[in-house]
Amino acid sequence: MSTLTSTDRALHDFAAQVGAEDPIAVEGNRTRWHLGGPLDELARLVEAPTGIVDYQPSEMVVTVRAGTTVAELHETLAAAGQTSALPDRGGTVGGAVAVGENRLDRLGRGSARDAVLQVRYVSAEGEIVTGGGPVVKNVSGFNLPKLIVGSLGTLGLIAEVVLRTNPLPPVQRWIRAERVDPRDIRDALLRPGAVLWDGTSSWALVEGHEVDVDAEVDKLATLADIADVDGPPELPPHRWFLSPQGAAHVDTMTDGAFIASIGVGTVWAEEPPQPAEPDPVAAQIAERTKRLFDPSGRLNPGRRAGA
């Protein structure tokens, strides 16, 4: 019998706490508390269970409960030379999955939504629901993990996830480059961890085997004035979601400070982003999804994914 139907005390306790009646929300470390609109004051707050349940480095998967901090998870993974695609902003694993933001080094680590192989959440009816599977490749049934990542807890309260891990590169070097089009840096590097741009300077995270990193940095030296730096620049507070090409032209869209992720499209800016115009039909599907998963609207009331 599959492990998916096994019982787990901490998850059942969490489900019991969530119940099936009243408005409810999960409180993590509140690092992204404002997203999706203000939470209804009537909502009862609960905390997700914590702890790393299972970790097999040779499988490159880790099972972790949602209340665990990303920092704790990454510490455990780092001991085996690995990490995950979740960003560490001082929050919890469940929070990071519910928000679904990618790391700064998204080019190197992949996206958060691709990292979630299996999710267990407590439904509006108070039942534990499992979607996906605990292995790196799986097309068994509908892709509930994708739906849950970035749903801000509006479809179910995340209790536990199985994440894909990836090996930390043997060498990582942050390089700052001047007098160069950041897109040329992106195109020159085969697999950069990140390429950033503030309108003047560029930064590149060059990673891999030492010999490859040296060769790639030598290549950059032919394109630009470069220097090794300790890390990426400070990021302004607001996130804009642009296409890669849009991010490379973000200097024409704002007068404020920004850091653009070249080749990805995400921009961190001083100014808040223009509200996105969602596809109207997609919005209808999203509304229907919410009604079907949470008919009484008790999960994270007041919040809406994408608001």
Partner: peptide, 13 residues
């Protein structure tokens, strides 16, 4: 074409 699009990931579903 955006790396992250706000709202539910219906594409992924």
């Amino acid at each position: 074409a955006e790396d992250e699009t706000p709202g539910l990931d219906l594409r992924g579903a």
